[in-house]
Every structure is written in C-alpha cells, then in structure tokens.
Computed example of a mutant assay.
Amino acid sequence: MNLSQEEWAEQFKNDDNAFLLDVRTPEEFEDTHIPGATNIDIYKGQGFIYEVDELDKSKNFYVYCRSGARSAKACQILEEMGIENTYNLLGGIMEWEGETE
C-alpha cells in the first residue's frame, strides 16, 4: 500500500509490530537513513529474496528507498513472498522530513 509521507510516518510511529526496511544500496544507506532501518538492497536480486525470507513475515513492513520506485517494487515482492502488510513511502527519503542519521 502506498502511503503519503504524513500517513506513513504517523502509522509507523504508532505500530508496535513495525519493521523498517530500506531497499537502497549500502552506499546510499551509509549516507543517510531513517533510524532503526534494516538495509537490504533490492538490486541484489535473488540475494534480496534470500535475506527477506529470513525475516519475520508477521511484521508490518514499512519500506522506503530514494524516491519511492524501488520500494514500490520491493512491496510487490514482499507480498508475493507472503508478507501481508507492506507500506511504501511515497516520495522516498528525498521527501522525508522526519529524523535521519
């Protein structure tokens, strides 16, 4: 599900079953990311699938990238893998006004 910056931030803040996933490259992640995010690069292809497969699929996945395109694709993949609740950050970290590190 695509959520606006405000909806995504509010829902994430109030979700005690949230998992924050950054699907950008490790270099992008090192540069800046949302605190508490786990980085799994969607460009790893099958490696991305393997790493996601190790995660708790009962979590609610809050996914972001630079602009929202890679994370939208990642949400599709997660859903195909049986993860029911995925939330894509529209506009990505480029439009993020919340905390970063």
Rank of each mutant, 00 (worst) to 15 (best):
N14G: 04
D15P: 08
D16K: 14
D16P: 04
N17F: 07
A18I: 06
A18M: 13
F19H: 01
F19A: 02
L20A: 02
L20G: 05
L20R: 05
L20P: 03
L21D: 09
L21S: 12
D22N: 10
D22T: 01
D22I: 04
V23F: 06
V23P: 03
V23N: 04
P26E: 03
E27C: 04
E28H: 04
E30C: 00
T32S: 04
T32F: 02
I34A: 09
A37H: 10
T38Y: 09
T38R: 12
N39C: 11
D41L: 14
Y43S: 14
G47A: 10
G47E: 12
F48Y: 14
I49G: 00
Y50Q: 14
Y50M: 07
L55P: 04
L55Y: 00
D56W: 02
D56T: 09
K57C: 00
K57T: 10
S58K: 14
S58L: 06
S58M: 12
K59D: 05
K59R: 13
N60Y: 04
N60A: 11
F61T: 10
F61Y: 14
V63H: 07
V63Y: 08
V63S: 07
V63A: 02
Y64S: 03
Y64D: 07
Y64I: 02
S71L: 11
A72S: 11
A74N: 13
C75G: 03
C75H: 02
C75N: 13
Q76V: 07
I77T: 09
I77P: 00
L78F: 13
L78T: 01
L78Q: 00
L78W: 06
E79D: 10
E80L: 15
E80A: 12
